[in-house]
Amino acid sequence: MGVTLTENAARHVENFIAKRGKGLGIRFGVKTSGCSGMAYKLEFVDDKHDEDLIFESHGIKILVDPKSLPYVEGTELDFVREGLNEGFKFNNPNVKDACGCGESFNV
């Protein structure tokens, strides 16, 4: 199952990496903090770690560290526009309750 990108999200990631000038792909995971337990982590990847799990979606590599996987397994990342705002949105089947801001969540 792993983690996937929508085609639109993949196109944007590709574009960002091209403009940035380097990067193997993106890292998606969680870290523990925030009002509701856990927070997403979304970063460019310059160096891959040995234990990283690598998924590929529409030509983009998504790296997930094994500890994060249980929390994000099955997530689809989409890129959306809401008014003037734009950015990545997650469809995470593991989430029970997210705090209102959407930046942190509980599983």
């Binding site: 890292r27 927070a39 982590k41 979304l42 970063e43 460019f44 990545f88 949105k89």
Partner: peptide
């Protein structure tokens, strides 16, 4: 909506 950060620079929520 989240943005992609530089490696190791993900903001705290």
């Amino acid at each position: 909506l989240l943005q992609i950060s530089e490696p190791g620079q993900s903001p705290e929520p």
